[in-house]
């Protein structure tokens, strides 16, 4: 098999890292490289438009913008780590938001403080529960019925989005209690609430992956499902749990979007599916499963948000943005293959 590598000791890359200078070491690891790129983008934009880009206003507005797609990327990442993909994240976000929105709507915008709190609590529970149920369905179709994840989540994504359309007739759900805006637009001191939500979720997922037995099982399953069975890993439960977690993170993203838009609709954030895949690939999550770090994902989110903000200042249209994201995805993947080729040699 890997005959030339047999007995060759550590891979050339590992040797390099041990002997090279600190700068080189930083650039040799994918995450280090990404960190440098992120800083470079930030510095470049800061130099280009110091007053507009580094302003408190812009920084805060960025901090409000990225948590929603960052949460979706986190959901996508979990599925990718198991060797799958979750094409239904946006569908789950919207469906859970619509159902939560209907719960909120029952309370209405002029509800008393007590009723509003109750309704918001109910809405959060509904949303996360819907996300979990959607995740169970994904996990069952993939883990029990052995559907390829692409097809399973393609089909379920259509169902979730379709249910959203069917329930609302395609229009937006409006009219929430004013207090609900806290989730998407509120701040704790100077820190935006959505940023806190994302930070908590990211730290949680990172802890789960790095420090728990379950996290290691996810990555082992993603590396080789057959060997997982032979090693006594309960592949079915790991799959279901992971898609449930992914569904709940998507639902959380849905809540943030709904609160920021003050409405819920079946076709919100349709470009986020591509964006979340782009972030995962950029962040070094292996699309074939088994490898990836939350820190890489966070850096990818930040660099994309900086870029996006720069594009905003240039008044670039949404269509052009779609073009840039797609192009970036392709370029990053090409660069990553050259990396792999070099490592294998």
């Amino acid at each position: 098999m890997n005959e030339p590598l047999d007995g060759a000791g550590p891979t050339p890359d590992a040797t390099l890292r041990r002997t090279a200078s600190p700068t080189f070491r930083l650039l040799a690891s994918p995450i280090g490289r990404l960190a440098v790129i992120t800083v470079l983008i930030f510095v470049a934009l800061a130099l280009l438009a110091p007053s507009r880009f580094v302003s408190v206003g812009n920084l805060t507005s960025m901090a409000f913008q990225f948590p929603e797609f960052a949460l979706l990327s986190l959901a996508m990442m979990l599925a990718m780590l198991t060797g799958g993909i979750d094409l239904s994240v946006v569908g789950i976000a919207n469906l859970s938001a619509i159902l939560a929105g209907l719960a909120l709507h029952a309370a209405g915008p002029e509800a008393s403080a007590g009723t509003a709190t109750l309704a918001i609590g109910a809405a959060i529970v509904v949303s996360l529960a819907v996300g979990a149920v959607c995740g169970v369905i994904n996990g069952l179709t993939i883990g029990r019925f052995a559907l390829p994840p692409i097809l399973a989540t393609l089909g379920s994504g259509l169902i979730y989005t379709g249910l959203g359309v069917a329930i609302t007739g395609g229009s937006a759900v409006l009219g929430f209690p004013a207090a609900f805006a806290i989730i998407g637009n509120g701040s704790l001191g100077i820190v935006p609430v959505p940023l806190i939500l994302f930070a908590v979720a990211a730290v949680g997922v990172a802890f789960l992956l790095g420090r728990t037995a379950y996290g290691i099982r996810i990555e082992l399953l993603g590396t080789n499902p057959l060997a997982s069975r032979f090693a006594g890993i309960d592949d079915f439960m790991v799959t279901v749990k992971t898609y449930v977690l992914s569904g709940m993170l998507a639902a959380l993203a849905g809540l943030v979007v709904m609160s920021r838009a003050n409405s819920a609709k079946a076709d919100y954030g349709s470009s986020y599916m591509l964006l979340s895949i782009l972030i995962c690939v950029l962040g070094g999550i292996n699309p074939n499963g088994g490898f990836g770090k939350v820190s890489g994902l966070v850096l990818a989110v930040l660099s994309l948000q900086f870029l996006s903000s720069g594009l905003n200042m240039l008044q670039v249209s949404n269509f052009a943005r779609e073009f840039i994201w797609g192009g970036l995805l392709l370029i990053v993947m090409v660069v990553n293959t050259f990396e792999l080729v070099r490592h294998r040699r």
Binding site: M1, R211, A213, L220, T223, N224, A227, G232, G290
Partner: peptide
């Protein structure tokens, strides 16, 4: 190669996979 090992993963994880629960304490923390 296909049934026994997680080829791209570390030697450590390949050895420890059967003992994850033994090393996991509260909430599965290792």
């Amino acid at each position: 190669l296909t049934e026994g090992l997680f080829l791209a993963q570390s030697i450590g994880r390949n050895i420890a996979v059967g003992r994850l629960d033994a090393h996991a304490g509260f909430a599965g923390i290792l």
